[in-house]
């Protein structure tokens, strides 16, 4: 069973790598920008990292693992918004990034305070 799960994961990772090599995301961009290939592959790599974070949120053994993964996902989506700023040429994506960073910081603080109070009954 464990070998079966390992096999599914390897098929997934190899498929993403092949997609990165042969086909960058073409439908998000203006067609006359110069760095379309590079930025499309960069979007694939960041989406892959976000999927790894979502795996840790889905299958974290404790609540603290999930909180760490949510914090990291919030920081990484800021980078995704920065890449979208260059690739689409629309400058309001970085505003989404700033708001997301603020909200992620407040979210991490509140969740960790909740976690600290929960096991404090001795």
């Amino acid at each position: 069973m464990k070998i079966f799960r390992w096999f599914i994961g390897m098929i997934f990772l190899v498929g993403i790598v092949i997609l990165i090599i042969i086909r960058p995301l073409p439908f998000l961009f203006y067609p006359d920008l110069p760095y379309i290939g590079f930025l499309g592959r960069a979007l694939y790599i960041i989406i892959l990292a976000c999927i790894l974070c979502l795996y840790r949120i889905w299958r974290g053994p404790t609540a603290a693992d999930r909180i760490v993964a949510v914090d990291i996902l919030g920081i990484m989506i800021v980078g995704l918004c920065a890449i979208l700023t260059i690739s689409t040429g629309r400058p309001w994506y970085i505003d989404i990034g700033i708001a997301w960073a603020l909200q992620s910081f407040i979210c991490a603080l509140a969740l960790s305070k909740y976690l600290e109070g929960k096991g404090f009954d001795d």
Partner: peptide, 12 residues
Amino acid sequence: AAHTIARGAHRA
């Protein structure tokens, strides 16, 4: 945020 998460996890 990282320091607060680590402190909360250790105290929990």
